[in-house]
């Protein structure tokens, strides 16, 4: 559970190599190439429907590319098996109902199950680790509250904490700030950045929140069917950042004027 994430500091953690992906014959990603090195914080920008979530789910290994390959830690993403515990994941919206009989701490502890191993009971060490992560996320006071009593932002922090508690080498985050208020969004990005540096993690985050992500991510990429650009954030020009917005406007234009059909 510790130590290994500091190895191979410059090795690629994620390699997306000539990847095509289609949903029911409708092309979502075409010839995508992307490399994320250890310790990078990559922000994925781009319009809604441009393929950000699909790309995250390909890296997660939940989806299998139609062509090309996705490697995570040098292995095919959809064949990670138990090594999947080295990848933390926070989905766009938690599908589980907050109605499950669990406290915030119970929920975070779930993140330790996979590395703990089959047949082993949760002990003091796992609960300590969960408490510490809740402290780092700035919500130690909610530890003993039932999930459903938490606000949307607090729940989202709990789910991030669950993804982080086993100290993954790669964290995949999909639109984490949906449903958070503006003040909450800003502190969320700051906390995540601090955690990423402390745990020396690689992070890939899909977001449309350009205002925050450009100050947090070390690299940015624009995804709209293809990877339009992929560069260190400080090198990006305003025009390139605008392009991510314009692509969004273009997509909306196509949807409005062509009966909602995809433009490919």
């Amino acid at each position: 559970m510790n130590g290994s994430h500091t190895d191979n500091s410059a090795a690629p953690v994620v390699q997306v190599d000539h990847v095509d992906f289609a949903w029911d014959g409708a092309e979502v990603l075409a010839d995508c190439n992307l490399e994320v090195l250890a310790g990078q914080f990559l922000g994925l920008l781009g319009p809604n429907g441009g393929g950000k979530t699909t790309l995250i789910r390909l890296i997660l290994g939940e989806l299998v590319p139609d062509r090309g390959q996705v490697l995570v830690l040098g292995r095919e993403a959809h064949r990670l098996g138990r090594e999947r515990r080295l990848v933390g994941y926070v989905p766009q919206r938690e599908r589980a109902e907050a109605n499950f009989p669990a406290t915030a701490l119970d929920t975070v502890v779930m993140g330790t199950f996979s590395s703990l191993g089959y047949g082993r009971r949760v002990g003091h060490a796992q609960r300590e680790a969960a408490v510490r992560i809740l402290e780092l996320m700035g919500i130690p006071h909610v530890a003993d509250k039932p999930l459903r009593q938490l606000s949307g932002g607090q729940q989202q922090r709990v789910f991030v904490a669950r993804a982080l508690v086993s100290q993954p080498r790669l964290l995949l985050v999909d639109e984490p700030t949906v449903g958070m208020d503006v003040g909450g969004q800003e502190s969320f990005f700051k906390e995540l950045k601090a955690l990423q540096e402390e745990l020396q993690m690689t992070v890939v985050m899909a977001t449309h929140d350009m205002g925050h992500i450009r100050h947090v991510a070390s690299w940015l990429a624009c995804v709209s069917r293809q990877i339009h650009w992929h560069r260190p954030s400080e090198e990006l020009t305003e025009e390139e950042l605008d392009q991510a917005c314009e692509l969004g406007a273009y997509h909306r234009h196509v949807k409005t004027h062509h009966g909602g059909q995809k433009e490919n």
Partner: peptide
Amino acid sequence: FDPHMAWASGL
């Protein structure tokens, strides 16, 4: 709690 997230965590 969540079969999808259980899978994503390596179970």
